[in-house]
Deep mutational scan, measured.
Amino acid sequence: TTYKLILNGKTLKGETTTEAVDAETAERVFKEYAKKNGVDGEWTYDDATKTFTVTE
């Protein structure tokens, strides 16, 4: 399944996708990605669109 991440950081904005077996796995991948890019904020997930959003 393809999951999407929307980054709404103070200095970094953008989108990325990952293939994962479930939302929990995708969330771990995306949180590591955000951490590596210095983005830390509020996380939300929309199951209907398989989209995570992190907003600083």
Rank of each mutant, 00 (worst) to 15 (best):
29 V>D: 07
43 W>D: 00
8 N>R: 07
36 K>C: 05
48 A>W: 09
48 A>N: 10
38 G>W: 07
7 L>T: 06
2 T>N: 12
35 K>R: 07
2 T>Q: 13
40 D>Q: 10
28 R>I: 10
7 L>Y: 13
47 D>I: 13
26 A>K: 00
48 A>M: 10
14 G>R: 05
55 T>H: 11
1 T>G: 09
28 R>D: 10
15 E>I: 04
26 A>Y: 00
33 Y>N: 02
50 K>I: 02
35 K>V: 13
6 I>D: 03
51 T>N: 02
8 N>L: 11
39 V>I: 14
17 T>I: 09
35 K>S: 08
49 T>M: 13
55 T>F: 11
49 T>Q: 07
8 N>D: 10
33 Y>A: 03
20 A>N: 03
12 L>M: 14
56 E>H: 06
55 T>A: 06
39 V>W: 09
11 T>C: 05
20 A>E: 14
46 D>R: 04
8 N>Q: 13
8 N>C: 04
16 T>N: 05
35 K>C: 04
54 V>S: 02
24 E>L: 07
49 T>I: 04
14 G>T: 08
38 G>M: 09
47 D>T: 08
39 V>P: 02
21 V>S: 07
30 F>T: 00
28 R>Y: 11
7 L>E: 02
48 A>R: 10
20 A>V: 07
21 V>E: 12
29 V>Y: 10
13 K>W: 10
18 T>H: 12
15 E>A: 06
36 K>M: 12
56 E>T: 04
22 D>E: 11
44 T>I: 11
20 A>W: 02
54 V>L: 15
23 A>L: 08
5 L>K: 00
5 L>Y: 02
39 V>R: 02
5 L>M: 11
41 G>T: 02
25 T>R: 13
26 A>W: 01
40 D>P: 05
10 K>N: 13
19 E>Q: 15
50 K>R: 11
1 T>S: 10
56 E>G: 04
6 I>E: 05
24 E>H: 07
2 T>D: 08
53 T>S: 05
43 W>F: 07
18 T>L: 12
15 E>D: 08
22 D>T: 09
18 T>Y: 11
44 T>Q: 12
29 V>R: 10
6 I>V: 08
6 I>S: 07
44 T>D: 10
9 G>L: 13
1 T>R: 11
55 T>W: 13
44 T>F: 13
43 W>P: 01
33 Y>V: 05
13 K>G: 08
17 T>W: 15
8 N>P: 02
45 Y>A: 01
28 R>L: 15
51 T>S: 12
53 T>D: 03
26 A>C: 02
56 E>P: 03
6 I>Q: 10
29 V>M: 13
1 T>L: 11
23 A>V: 10
54 V>M: 08
7 L>I: 15
46 D>H: 08
52 F>V: 01
4 K>P: 00
11 T>I: 06
25 T>E: 11
10 K>D: 10
8 N>K: 09
51 T>M: 09
46 D>V: 06
43 W>S: 01
30 F>P: 00
14 G>K: 12
11 T>D: 14
3 Y>C: 01
1 T>W: 15
18 T>I: 05
6 I>N: 05
16 T>F: 08
5 L>C: 04
42 E>I: 06
38 G>F: 15
2 T>F: 13
50 K>T: 05
3 Y>W: 04
41 G>W: 10
35 K>T: 15
43 W>T: 02
25 T>Q: 12
47 D>S: 08
34 A>Q: 02
20 A>P: 02
17 T>P: 02
3 Y>G: 00
20 A>M: 03
31 K>T: 07
20 A>G: 05
37 N>K: 09
46 D>M: 07
16 T>V: 12
20 A>D: 03
6 I>K: 09
56 E>M: 04
37 N>G: 05
53 T>G: 03
50 K>W: 07
13 K>I: 12
9 G>M: 10
8 N>W: 08
3 Y>V: 01
33 Y>P: 00
37 N>L: 13
20 A>H: 03
36 K>W: 11
43 W>H: 01
10 K>V: 14
24 E>C: 06
53 T>E: 07
7 L>W: 14
32 E>G: 05
46 D>A: 07
30 F>Q: 00
9 G>I: 12
1 T>E: 09
21 V>F: 08
39 V>E: 02
4 K>E: 02
14 G>W: 09
29 V>H: 14
53 T>C: 05
33 Y>E: 03
7 L>Q: 03
41 G>L: 02
44 T>N: 07
12 L>T: 13
35 K>Y: 08
36 K>V: 12
23 A>F: 12
15 E>C: 03
11 T>E: 14
26 A>E: 00
4 K>T: 13
6 I>H: 06
16 T>S: 11
39 V>S: 04
39 V>H: 05
25 T>I: 11
9 G>E: 03
1 T>M: 13
55 T>D: 11
12 L>V: 13
16 T>A: 07
24 E>M: 15
44 T>Y: 11
11 T>F: 14
45 Y>Q: 01
45 Y>W: 05
8 N>S: 07
49 T>E: 13
48 A>C: 05
45 Y>P: 00
16 T>G: 05
9 G>D: 03
23 A>M: 05
21 V>P: 15
18 T>W: 06
54 V>D: 01
24 E>T: 10
13 K>E: 10
46 D>I: 06
31 K>N: 07
6 I>P: 00
56 E>A: 05
48 A>Q: 11
38 G>D: 13
9 G>K: 03
35 K>E: 07
54 V>W: 03
52 F>M: 03
40 D>A: 13
11 T>M: 13
18 T>F: 06
15 E>R: 04
5 L>P: 00
31 K>S: 06
4 K>V: 12
15 E>K: 05
5 L>N: 01
33 Y>T: 04
10 K>R: 14
28 R>E: 13
4 K>D: 01
51 T>H: 03
13 K>F: 12
50 K>C: 03
2 T>V: 08
53 T>P: 00
42 E>G: 06
33 Y>H: 13
25 T>W: 12
17 T>Q: 09
10 K>I: 15
16 T>L: 14
11 T>G: 13
34 A>V: 15
29 V>E: 08
12 L>F: 13
30 F>A: 01
32 E>W: 11
49 T>L: 13
21 V>I: 09
16 T>E: 10
5 L>I: 05
47 D>N: 10
44 T>H: 14
56 E>W: 13
50 K>L: 12
47 D>F: 15
13 K>S: 10
10 K>F: 14
1 T>K: 15
44 T>V: 15
20 A>L: 03
55 T>I: 11
8 N>G: 04
19 E>R: 10
32 E>T: 08
23 A>H: 15
54 V>T: 03
43 W>C: 02
3 Y>I: 01
28 R>S: 07
50 K>N: 15
43 W>G: 00
41 G>M: 02
12 L>R: 02
2 T>S: 12
10 K>C: 06
44 T>S: 14
54 V>A: 05
40 D>K: 09
6 I>A: 03
41 G>D: 02
5 L>Q: 00
32 E>R: 06
5 L>G: 01
30 F>Y: 02
37 N>A: 12
10 K>P: 11
15 E>L: 04
18 T>K: 04
40 D>V: 13
43 W>A: 01
14 G>V: 15
7 L>D: 01
52 F>Y: 12
29 V>A: 13
14 G>N: 13
48 A>T: 11
36 K>L: 12
28 R>K: 12
32 E>Q: 08
7 L>H: 06
11 T>Y: 15
7 L>F: 08
18 T>N: 04
22 D>L: 06
23 A>Y: 08
51 T>Y: 03
6 I>L: 15
32 E>S: 15
21 V>Q: 09
29 V>I: 15
27 E>W: 14
42 E>S: 14
55 T>N: 04
34 A>F: 03
44 T>G: 15
13 K>T: 15
25 T>N: 10
53 T>N: 06
33 Y>F: 08
20 A>R: 03
52 F>C: 01
16 T>D: 04
15 E>S: 10
10 K>T: 15
22 D>F: 05
12 L>G: 08
55 T>V: 08
25 T>F: 09
31 K>M: 09
6 I>W: 05
